[in-house]
Design a protein around this nucleic acid. Structure first.
Lengths: 254, 254
DNA sequence: CCATCTTTGTGCACGCGTTCACAAAGACAT
DNA sequence: ATGTCTTTGTGAACGCGTGCACAAAGATGG
């Protein structure tokens, strides 16, 4: 049962709760904005509003990092920017490889937010020989045959997977074997990795489906309020063309 | 003062916990795979493995939907696909607009996963007059002047924002005013919306920063284990708790 | 029909995360 | 120095999510 974990078992990294870690980048972004406007200090209330969270939560989050505030005044913006950056490991440079240079991979390569804060796209890798040699965002695409060498030579530890789902696990395995220990997965697949490797997934389809759920609920409530007749009347008409996959009529067994 | 919750206050939609809703798409994907391979039934253990979750959790999740399993046998794949699809509102068609047709917006427009299950890109909208009229993924880009009409005419209730952060809030406001009630936000900004509007955000930069945190932690532990001369060498003084006083090096990550 | 075996559905306990509420700490004015 | 005022840092309560462990339910075979 060497099954890799997909989800971190709440390791409680170093006393800093996972939920707090996930919010630190949010605070950092808000603080950077203040820093650019030369705001010297900020209260937990103000910063919380800017980050869209509860102020008590923010204070508790910061308390895990240490006592960096001054009572009666607030937090020193520059100092806090530095402390959070350091805590997140952004004072060093993280080389990143992107594997799978389709539309999404190319978009990410061009995405400014990548380079902005401690991350540097060290290489773009694709399995298509046609792609190799092409320039994207000023970076030459390399063939996946050289994956291991590229990762080793550049000391890369973070990989981004933007391949089709069919090859994602296979790519993942090679990345891990080559020394990658953190993966950001855009492919709609459950990746299995050994212990010690972190995987975070970004799944557009899932996000949309969650929105659809709430949207449906809203429509249902609204309809129930206006009238009992059905909002979802023609729901299952749908019919015809349907999927490349064996999408089925889905009969109702008892 | 404007309401504007960014985070849903755990509405507990209709007895179905939010955490469960977030996992339903995962189950649905695994089930679709089984369906394509004509697997008739599946046990909670098998399906949980395929979805990368705990089997008890999966059973509990399904219990919120009803008692759809058969003890001693498992779950009927087709039936479950239908039930989950219905619960998520995927038996109807959801028209979606994408606003901001840069690299990312174009990538999403081309993304197959969009159309695959209940979602249809009804329109691509951009503020640049140069973009208007161009064809992307077989869809003609329209100018943002027509945003309200497009949304109204097509009965769109879900919007995707892939604009630069500077205009995201403004675009969001217009979308909401035009009738959009669910937003998927890719811009690195905290969006403020009225009650009744759902926002989910996808933030590449934040995901990377979370990975960096864990990566740094791993490097630190490793270095501590192998003693002093770790691979990352000059990560930082780290050890002692810095100067408690305002001795601030304060780096400025642009 | 009864025994056995498999698998679901769930009661229960536990831990994490969130929020409230307030005492302690420091700034600032007099 | 002293009092007042602001804001932090945190103890404590609460609710949600998770996972264990098991009884109930149904299939299956004799």
């Amino acid at each position: 049962m060497a099954t890799g974990r997909t989800h971190r078992p709440a390791t409680r990294s170093r006393g800093i709760p996972e939920a707090t870690v996930a919010r630190l980048p949010l605070y950092l972004r808000a603080l950077t904005g203040l820093s650019e406007r030369s705001v010297p200090t900020v209260s937990s209330e103000e910063l919380a509003a800017a980050a869209g969270v509860n102020s008590a939560k923010l204070r508790k989050d910061f308390s895990y990092l240490g006592s960096y505030g001054t009572r009666g005044v607030g937090y020193d913006v520059e100092y806090l920017v530095y402390q959070i950056s350091r805590e997140l490991g952004l004072t060093q440079d993280w080389p990143v490889v992107i594997v799978g240079i389709g539309n999404l991979g190319a978009a990410l390569a061009n995405y400014g937010g990548f380079a902005s804060r401690g991350f540097r796209v060290a290489a773009l890798i694709d399995a298509d020989p046609e792609m190799a040699g092409k320039q994207i965002a000023g970076i030459t695409v390399q063939h996946s045959d050289d994956m291991e060498r590229i990762i080793s030579d550049n000391g890369v530890s973070i990989g981004v997977i933007t391949t089709p789902p069919g090859v994602a696990q296979q790519v993942c395995d090679r990345l891990v074997a080559a020394g990658i220990t953190s993966i950001l997965n855009f492919a709609p697949t459950v990746l299995t990795v050994p212990d010690g490797v972190d995987v975070r997934k970004v799944d557009l389809s899932i996000e949309l489906q969650i929105l659809a759920f709430h949207e449906q609920r809203k429509a249902g409530e609204e309809a129930a309020a206006t009238d009992g007749a059905g909002p979802v009347a023609a729901v299952r008409g749908e019919s015809a063309d349907k999927g490349p996959d064996g999408d089925v009529p889905a009969v109702m067994p008892a």
